[in-house]
Nucleic acid binder design. Structure first.
Lengths: 125, 125
DNA sequence: CTACCTGCAAACTTTTTGCAGCCCA
DNA sequence: TGGGCTGCAAAAAGTTTGCAGGTAG
C-alpha cells in the first residue's frame, strides 16, 4: 500500500498552503509549473481522494461546488461580488445554531456553513 | 418589448411553486410534460434571465451551483446527506451577523446564506 | 513482484451560443 | 413589422474513466 507520490504530495501541500480556495483547474496549472507533465485527471483523482480522507474540504454545503479548502476546521467564507475572490472570515463562529436548527427541523445535524456576499475593501476604494 | 411567452411563464410558475429546489434539468423535464418540444437552451436562458431580474434565486453563496429557489426571501437550507433532498429551514434567521462580519472584514455586505448538512427525520427512522 | 499511481485520451455531463425562423405588441 | 423569443444543434467547459505502462514498498 503506497501512500506518496510526488504529484500527490504537491497537490496536498498546495491546497493546504494556499488561501485562495482554489478550483481544480487552478490547482492543475499551479502544480504544472513544478511538474510540467502532470495531468488534469490526476489532479481530480487526488482532490477526490484527499477529500474522502478529510484532508481537504469542499466549499459549500450544497455540494456541487468544486473549489477546495485546505483548512478543514469550521470557518466561514465571504465572496466579493466585484472581483470574485473568496476569503475566510476569521474569528467568528455562530454558536448554538446547530442545536437550534436540529430542534426546529428534526434533523440530526452534521455541520453547517455560512457564506457572505458583498464588496471587499479593495473594490470599495 | 415583449414580456411573456408560454414557455417563460411555465418556467416561472414551476420554480415559484415547487419546494424542491430544482436543477435546470429537472425544470426542463417537468416543463416538457406540458410543452413537449421545449428545448433545454430555453430553460437555461430563462432561468438566467429570471435570476437577473431577481424573480428566482440561485442557491448557495459561492455561486457555481445550479439549483434554483422560487423563494427569494432570506431563508436557510438544509441538505440531507443520505437522500440528498434540500429543504428550507423555516422560521429562523440569525440576527446581526451581517453587521458583525462587516465590522470584522471591512466588506460591505449584501447578503448571507446558511446551509446545514445532516440526516433528515425520514432517513433517521 | 504487485499494488497503486500516473499520463493520456476518450467519454460524459452540464451549460452556453449561433442561427434561422416564429410570434406578439 | 421588428425585436425578442424559440428550437435545434454544435460548441465549450468541467469532470470522469479505461487503459497501458511506471514506480515505490
Amino acid at each position: 500500500m503506497r501512500r506518496h507520490s510526488k504529484q500527490r504530495e504537491m497537490i496536498v501541500n498546495l491546497v493546504k498552503r494556499t488561501k485562495s480556495h482554489p478550483s481544480a483547474e487552478w490547482v492543475y496549472t499551479e502544480v504544472k509549473k513544478k511538474v510540467p507533465n502532470i495531468s488534469l485527471g490526476t489532479v481530480y483523482r487526488n482532490l477526490k481522494l484527499l477529500q474522502s480522507k478529510g484532508e481537504v474540504a469542499e466549499i459549500s454545503c450544497e455540494g456541487d461546488e468544486f473549489r477546495f479548502d485546505g483548512n478543514t476546521g469550521l470557518h466561514y467564507h465571504i465572496t466579493c461580488q466585484r472581483c470574485g475572490k473568496i476569503s475566510d472570515v476569521e474569528g467568528y463562529i455562530i454558536k448554538g445554531v446547530e442545536n437550534k436548527v436540529s430542534a426546529l427541523t428534526g434533523y440530526q445535524i452534521t455541520t453547517h456553513c455560512v457564506g457572505f456576499r458583498g464588496i471587499c475593501p479593495e473594490c470599495l476604494k
